[in-house]
């Protein structure tokens, strides 16, 4: 495992929220945090609620802005610093390198599920038909009933939406996956499917960082755990 190249290298990362609307209150969340993830490795983030696990994932995805340090990810064969990358670089990194499964699904209201899942592939230049075929096979594997494929997911149950989310993140086989509670609303059978999908991803060399509250899931997928240290709050 140590021979595998580093896919993520977080160095001396600082994250503090400054709430200007609340009198400039400062909330430090991460301080001087460093860790690396290699190709083919799945790292589970642990720590008490509020320690900043989700914040760390969002920082790596470029959804949050770091106050200090570097977040290097391997993109197209070179390391790119997410903390200082231009928006244009970030868009390219997300399209080809970074996949992110959030706890919530955010999509345009009327787009059918299968289109949502196929879209990352189409954006990367896959022909529409081929992309739909790939999307269909992933949806099938996640036990999303075929009658739902042509329906927009707005009215789906939490578990169904979650699976659409996972499908769209996994369909394009990106080399880095960030998973925030991917199994939270799933039943045992579908949890097992997601576990096998994660194992498939690491087997093909993907680096995965995830938050898995479910102990069994964590044990099944994680190669190691990384405890996000709690930052002492300024009073």
């Amino acid at each position: 495992m140590t021979d595998a190249p580093a896919m993520i290298a977080v160095e001396e990362l600082d994250k503090t929220f400054t709430l200007h609307v609340q009198g400039g209150a400062r909330i430090p969340v991460l301080s001087d945090l460093s860790f690396t993830v290699s190709a083919g490795e799945c790292v589970a983030l642990t720590g008490p609620s509020g320690a900043g696990k989700s914040t760390l994932l969002r920082l790596i995805y470029g959804n949050y802005k770091a106050q200090g340090g570097r977040i290097l990810v391997r993109h197209d064969g070179a390391m790119v610093d997410i903390a200082s990358a231009s928006p244009r670089t970030m868009l390219a990194v997300r399209a080809r390198t970074l996949g992110y499964v959030s706890q919530f699904l955010r999509v345009v209201p009327r787009v059918p599920s299968i289109e949502i899942v196929a879209e990352p592939l189409i954006r990367l230049g896959t022909a529409r038909e081929a992309a739909r075929d790939r999307a269909a096979s992933v949806l099938q594997r996640l036990n999303v009933p075929e009658r739902l494929w042509t329906i927009a997911p707005a009215t789906f149950s939490g578990g169904e939406q979650q699976r659409i989310n996972i499908a769209s993140a996994l369909v394009s086989e990106r080399p880095i996956l960030l998973l925030d509670e991917p199994t939270a609303s799933l039943d045992a059978a579908n949890r097992a499917v997601v576990i096998s999908l994660i194992r498939d991803a690491t087997a093909r060399g993907a680096a995965i960082v995830g938050i898995f509250h479910d102990r069994d899931v964590r044990a099944a997928v994680a190669d190691r755990e990384f405890a996000v240290p709690e930052v002492r709050r300024a009073a």
């Binding site: 290097l72 993109h75 197209d76 390391m79 610093d81 390219a92």
Partner: peptide, 12 residues
């Protein structure tokens, strides 16, 4: 390895 940061990927 990590220090080799590419500031401008081809797309840029």
């Amino acid at each position: 390895e990590a220090a080799r940061v590419d500031p401008s990927p081809a797309t840029e």
